[in-house]
Design a protein around this nucleic acid. Sequence first.
DNA 1: CTGTTGAAATTTTTT
DNA 2: ATTTCAACAG
Length: 686
Amino acid sequence: MPATAAKDRVLDALNEPQLEAATHGDGPLLIIAGAGSGKTTTLVHRVAQLIDAGVAPQRILLLTFTRRSAADMLSRAQRVLPKNRNSGRVWAGTFHGTGARLLRMYGEAIGLNPRFTIHDRGDSEDLMRSLVVELKLNKDDKKFPKKGTLMAIHSFSVNAGRTLNQVLKSNFSGHAARQGPLKKLFTAYERRKQQLAVFDYDDLLVRWCELLEHDEVGSRIRERFDHVLVDEYQDTNPLQSRLLKLLRPDGRGLTVVGDDAQSIYSFRAATVRNILDFPKQFPKARVVKLEQNYRSTEPLLAASNQVIAAAREQYKKKLWSDRREGSRPQLITCHDEDEQSEFIVGRILDHKKAGIPLREQAVLFRASHHSISLETELARHNIPFVKYGGLKFVEAAHVKDLMSFLRLAENPRDVVAGTRVLTLLPGIGPKKASQLMEMLAVPDADFQLWAATKPPAKAKQLWPGFLIMMQELMEQGGNMPGQIERVLEFYQPLLAEQYDNPDRRLADLEQLQQIAAKFDERTEMLSDLTIDPPTSESELPGAAKDRDHLVLSTMHSAKGLEWQAVYVLHASEGMIPQERSFDDVDAVKEERRMFYVALTRAANWLYVCHAQVHFQRSGYGGWNRWDDDGFRELTRFLSPGAQQCFDRQTASQFVPPDSLVTSQSKSRSPRKSTRKKRKSRPVRQG
DNA sequence: CTGTTGAAATTTTTT
DNA sequence: ATTTCAACAG
């Protein structure tokens, strides 16, 4: 490689394996990157190095797990690059987002309607449900799976590239007897989506594959890119693997990065086989391992290493850190959930006092509702927080309503959007809505077709205005806030009547209007908000950016992130691993990896809490469903060996770790402390 | 057919 | 809490 000054700048500060990965040529490359080993840094430098070496940015495709991480990586690459090089034109985004983009560009060439609309999971479930009713599949089968399960089965089958029969046997054995009706349903579902010009999430990958399999279009796309880099490769599924193989048949220019120990998305058909078999699939692949952890102190790493040691699949790695100093992780036994919440709030305030801002602290949990008690406690103490995971802004009923108006204008054949909108009108129910939507199932349909129909008496008043609005929207391009304003004029009275809390909901819609201002085109806005919706309040406009927020997150959504202080909630049997995975060996393995992911998010302080008495609660409800006494054992993932890496304490007699007392504001590593040996406190057992 | 009410059953993670 | 179904009134 040429030893230019620019080159040095792009590559300095990398360790040896990182450097090797960043400067590797264009043969297939697998980077096994342990937790906190500078995976992102390496990927960023590789991208920068490629650009610096003269690869045109638009000929690089960077596939990441979220849009946010794509944006982060590009801006980091820009910071590394000399001024005259620009990373802005790199194709960066999620698999699904990139699929949508390519399908808009090339879809017509293989006979797809380029104005397709995209269904989110809820929309897909609605369509599935309407087909169940249409085909009368639940008439004399009261236990027929619900829409959510139906989509899960179908989606898994598509993403895993396995037949319905196989999927039923392996993952949904309870419904194995329903193979016939399910097959019929899914065939109808596929056909219906085609007729309606709607894509579900899976279609964005499936159709992308079809683009690549097309002789002419496929070559054009392949020739577009010199390099394809994939982040979080351990969480890709067989369909995505097939996609990559089609994109880079001989593996040239293909780089994948991941950690088999952090694979936690098997419910989406992700499989560690992809990363484990990469060298088999591309025999010339170079494998580089990153084993030095820069994130966590040695005492924290020792604990997480213990947890994962019992589970390593392949790619043995020895993660090590030279951040010797720091307090041991704390394993805290709480009597019940309330004590756990109080304890965590106390520690959060301690850390804040010691100079760790809230945004550098995170509470992690297995399931979204595990944090409800804590959220109440945080509110009582006026501690601001943002929550990742759980219900999203765009999934709120009123936001979906408004988006459906726009989606119907975009694609009048979109029955799901149409039905949603039409049934908002008084006097129109599913039956009438479906009749009306059938009228639009013709080429070049517009809303004039409805002018001749007589609306039900109750809808008479609204009907003419509704038609005019829809027609205008359909013919209008751009000015997204204006389009939303137009819908609001019509929708606001309906909203006030239909929902409680109309004022708050209206405020949400005004927020949506602000989001919309960032988009030039409706197509773009609808696609983007469906594929990459804002994941927390902090990503919405109007959020006080400078306000310091604590982070609450599911373990899934915490992937790839790090904080100075991390609190893990409910480290007990039944919570993690969650009870439903008990009799599935592979599921329990995945729960372990999830726990490992949670522990390895911490840089300096780690508190793992477990409540001894806790009644499992169902969803958001408040009633106990279990007949047991509520007693919870510590999670099996903290074996006696792992426990020795922790200081064990009870919440009621807690003594803070020394490092916190001496730590300084903004310092990343805790001050060297004159640590006194402190005996772990005995904890009541049984 | 629409819209409401009540009863019974459910149980995670997310592009 | 939410989803689904059935029964019933208008």
